[in-house]
Simulated scan of single mutants.
Amino acid sequence: MCLDGYTPVPPTHVATVVTYLEMREPPPRPPRAPLPLDAIGADVARYRALYRAIGESWLWFGRARVGDEALLAILADPDVEALALTEDGRDIGLLELDWRKPGEAELAYFGLVPGAVGQGRGRLLMDEALRRAFARPIGRFWVHTCTLDHPGAVEFYRRSGFRPYARAIEVTPDPRLTGDLPRDAARQIPLLAE
């Protein structure tokens, strides 16, 4: 199988390169004061609003495609923790950890609303993610990101102690055409089919 060259993608789809990263033990981190994190719990509307505020400009569609009942089942699972970073009574960050696979923790979703990026909050939120993930007996903490995400995501994860171990190409129906996201989401990614 030859993977060199270009592969056509239908105009109704988007393609992205996905990078998988992992760590096997927590990197040394100084102790920090607790962050103002609030458990989202079964509040599907709150989760969706925060997910959209963070991810719409990056074309996050994973949870947008999940129905309310399925999302509620995920959020209610005792091995999933969805937390909102709050400031002045507003949700400004999302930390979602998933321990459903034995011996592993996945950083399922992690991000800040646009106005909170670049001010050190991401580092504090990641330190909390590391603390929480490794508070349980796991052998691996992993995350994946893609070329549709913030351009600094891979380097941020590397600086946090994650190491890349695999790549994949994901091709999926454009969520702006399926109705999962508004048509004006992620304007930096051309909408080819009208």
Rank of each mutant, 00 (worst) to 15 (best):
M1Q: 08
L3H: 13
D4C: 10
D4M: 10
V9W: 05
P11S: 13
P11Q: 04
H13C: 14
A15V: 13
A15G: 15
V18K: 08
T19I: 12
L21G: 07
M23H: 05
E25C: 03
P26N: 06
P26M: 11
P26K: 12
P26F: 07
R29I: 00
P30Y: 02
P31D: 13
P31K: 07
R32C: 02
R32N: 04
A33H: 08
A33W: 04
L35T: 08
P36Q: 04
P36V: 00
L37A: 07
D38C: 05
D38H: 06
G41W: 14
G41K: 12
D43P: 09
V44Q: 12
V44G: 10
A45W: 09
R46L: 04
A49E: 01
A49S: 03
L50G: 01
L50K: 02
Y51H: 00
A53R: 11
W60F: 05
F61W: 14
F61R: 12
G62I: 05
R63G: 07
R63W: 14
A64R: 00
R65E: 13
V66A: 13
E69G: 06
A70K: 14
A70H: 10
A70L: 11
L72V: 00
A73I: 07
I74K: 01
A76G: 01
P78K: 06
D79T: 01
A82D: 09
A82S: 13
L83G: 05
E87H: 09
D88P: 00
G89H: 05
D91I: 02
G93E: 08
L94Q: 01
W99G: 14
K101W: 11
K101E: 10
P102R: 10
P102Q: 08
E104F: 07
E104W: 06
A105N: 09
E106L: 14
F110N: 13
F110Q: 11
L112C: 04
G115H: 10
V117H: 01
G118D: 02
R121N: 00
R121C: 00
G122S: 09
L124Y: 09
L125K: 00
E128T: 08
L130C: 14
R131K: 05
R131S: 11
R132H: 01
R132G: 01
A133Y: 11
I138D: 15
I138A: 15
G139V: 02
R140A: 09
F141L: 14
W142K: 04
V143Q: 08
H144M: 03
T145M: 07
T147L: 02
L148P: 09
L148M: 13
D149E: 00
P151K: 10
V154L: 09
S160E: 02
G161Q: 08
R163K: 12
P164K: 11
P164F: 10
Y165S: 12
I169Q: 15
V171M: 10
T172C: 04
P173K: 12
P175K: 06
D180H: 03
D180C: 03
P182D: 12
P182Y: 14
P182Q: 08
A185V: 02
A186Y: 06
A186E: 00
I189A: 03
I189E: 06
P190I: 06
P190S: 07
L191D: 00
E194W: 12
